[in-house]
Design a protein around this nucleic acid. Structure first.
Length: 283
DNA sequence: TGCCAGGCCTTCC
DNA sequence: GGAAGGCATGGC
């Protein structure tokens, strides 16, 4: 098995994989993670400015890993720019420098974030893994079995009750309906991805179980819309504390407007730093 | 035990 | 258009 070695700058594997944007990575040794992405298993280790990557599938590995991990983007310039936003952002970024957005699969992200509604990260992770194990393609890596996230086609005959058995709770019917519509051609993800952001959001909001926050996460994490600033309970809390004098009456709309005005096209990554830090208790 | 989690849907004004 | 209530389930 050939090992890919990549030189990186302004990249932190731990922050990138543990910031809550993805659900299928597991730390197996210090600074070493195994995860399943669209079509393969990756084992990634970071040692300083070097990433060591092996996979069950070596075809296009460098290209796939580079794109997935966001290594084709200039985060040095980005971070230098976002810390100028204000001292609160600067403080947050000082704890989590090197955190990047991944470029994740659209369908997997859609289903995962439908599951995320009023849920917690460990349980989301558990459900996504269970769906993969039951319905996804099995692949072998280092003598162990892993499962790709299933395609819509592979989920064609799955019933609402079977989703429920995967631990998704009341979101079972939303997943069922979404998969059904995709398989009927009623929703075409490839076409959606080409839409401009307002149109894309409108289409996503037409999917059962997808509201404003879930739509935002999908657009940010799998459609490359970097300016999107998702507001969940954690971000709402920290934004109120940092920018609205802890005023309980502050609305999500006010927070969204503030983020748009002050963070602009960098809203997405700033949100991610705030989210990670507030959960860790570092801001 | 009761509250909370990367909220959304339905119902009712 | 906005407010209130319900919702599965595991962790604390």
């Amino acid at each position: 098995m050939k090992e890919l070695k990549l030189n990186v700058k302004c990249f932190n594997l731990k922050y990138t994989l543990e910031c809550g944007q993805c659900f299928r990575w597991k730390e197996v040794e210090p600074n070493t993670y195994i995860g399943v992405i669209k079509d393969r298993v990756l084992k990634v280790k970071q040692d300083g400015n070097t990433l060591y990557i092996i996979s069950n599938k070596e075809e296009n590995l460098e290209e796939v890993a580079t794109k997935y991990l966001g290594l084709d983007k200039d985060y040095e310039t980005l971070e230098k720019r976002i810390v100028l936003a204000d001292d609160k952002v600067k403080e947050a970024v000082s704890h989590t420098s090197g955190l990047r957005h991944l470029s994740q699969d659209f369908f997997e992200t859609l289903i995962s974030y439908i599951i995320s509604a009023n849920n917690n990260i460990p349980r989301i992770s558990k459900s996504v893994n269970e769906i993969s194990k039951r319905y996804g393609t099995k692949v072998e890596f280092n003598g162990q079995d892993y499962y790709l996230f299933p395609t819509a086609k592979q989920l064609k005959d799955v019933t609402i009750a079977e989703y429920r058995d995967c631990g998704v709770g009341f979101r079972d019917k939303y997943i069922y309906d979404t998969v059904k519509r995709i398989n009927e051609g009623n929703i075409n993800l490839e076409e959606l991805k080409k839409l401009d952001t307002p149109k894309l959001k409108k289409e996503l909001l037409g999917i059962m179980g997808v509201g404003p926050k879930v739509a935002d996460c999908i657009m940010l994490f799998s459609c490359g819309r970097q300016e999107i600033f998702p507001i969940d309970v954690w971000v709402e809390r920290i934004m109120k504390r940092l920018y609205f004098n802890n005023d309980e009456k502050t609305t999500k709309k006010q927070i969204a407007e503030y983020a748009d005005k002050h963070f602009g096209c960098d809203g997405g990554i700033i949100q991610q730093h705030l989210f990670y830090n507030v959960r860790e208790g570092t801001i």
